[in-house]
């Protein structure tokens, strides 16, 4: 009975959405065709939003990676929300798993020597790679989120190789807090300097150079550290490994 209802609802969703998307061309779009309306100045412009980003993004933000320009600068507020969501997840998981902290750990077999040695060896390189990804977020594909995830994966490797390993909670929390405060602090400085929250107040420098694009690298480093420590925290809480 429940299955039948579910199947009918799923088919209904498929048909309704399918018909709606049948009206939308796939790939056959000219981004210049859309004309946006500025509600504050109450005027119609000939530009369209994505075309404007592609044309002016490099000049307006200093970042050659337009997706980064959109994520961190044009729609930086969304990214602040996104960072908050991840922070919430790590806080929530920490709160939910709290009760089980005093539980006795199950006996876990040690990993073999190859895994232990290799993970020790790789640990530094993986962290370095993650740092590379988020430091170059404004120049190449990637950015704070993938970089942070890579860093967290290096810790995950240690968890797998050494059953007794656990990350220092206090330092994780401090890293998380400081990175978050940096992000909000950059936003508030922008508010003070130019009366726009998250305003890109630093000089852009030359495009394609590492020190360019104003506050974007700073924000992405903060995001990278934050995502890395938060994902590690989530992994740690779910493993439930405590002494």
């Amino acid at each position: 009975m429940k299955r039948a209802v579910a199947a009918i609802l799923a088919i209904l969703i498929f048909i309704v959405l399918g018909l709606a998307f049948a009206k939308i061309p796939f790939g056959n779009v000219n981004l210049e065709d859309y004309h946006y309306y500025n509600p504050i100045q109450d005027k119609q412009t000939s530009d369209s939003v994505p075309a404007h980003y592609l044309k002016e993004g490099k000049n307006e933000t200093g970042s050659t990676n337009i997706v980064t320009a959109v994520v961190v600068d044009y729609r930086g507020f969304d990214t602040l929300g996104e960072v908050t969501v991840l922070f919430l997840a790590s806080t929530g998981v920490g709160s939910v798993m709290y009760i089980f902290e005093k539980e006795k750990r199950r006996k876990v077999r040690r990993a073999n020597a190859v895994v232990e040695t290799a993970s020790k060896l790789l640990f530094g390189f993986i962290i370095l790679f993650g740092a590379y990804i988020f430091v170059h977020g404004h120049l190449t594909p990637g950015g704070g989120f993938p970089g942070g995830a890579v860093i967290a994966s290096s810790f995950l490797l240690l968890y797998l190789a050494y059953p007794k390993f656990h990350a220092e909670h206090k330092s994780l929390n401090v890293a998380e807090s400081l990175a978050g405060l940096t992000f909000v602090g950059v936003g508030l400085i922008g508010l003070l300097v130019a009366s726009y929250f998250l305003y890109n107040f630093l000089p852009f420098g030359l495009p394609t150079y590492l020190f360019s694009a104003g506050v974007i690298p700073i924000i992405y480093v903060a995001v990278g550290v934050k995502v890395g420590s938060e994902l590690t925290g989530i992994v740690d809480a779910m493993m439930g490994v405590r002494e």
């Binding site: 959109v70 729609r75 996104e82 969501v85 997840a89 790590s90 950015g143 989120f145």
Partner: peptide
């Protein structure tokens, strides 16, 4: 570029909800 930026946000949100 906008949908890519939106998806980046949506993925992270999805991960958080799953966690």
């Amino acid at each position: 570029p906008i949908p890519q930026a939106l998806v980046l946000t949506a993925i992270v949100i999805g991960v958080s909800v799953m966690a």
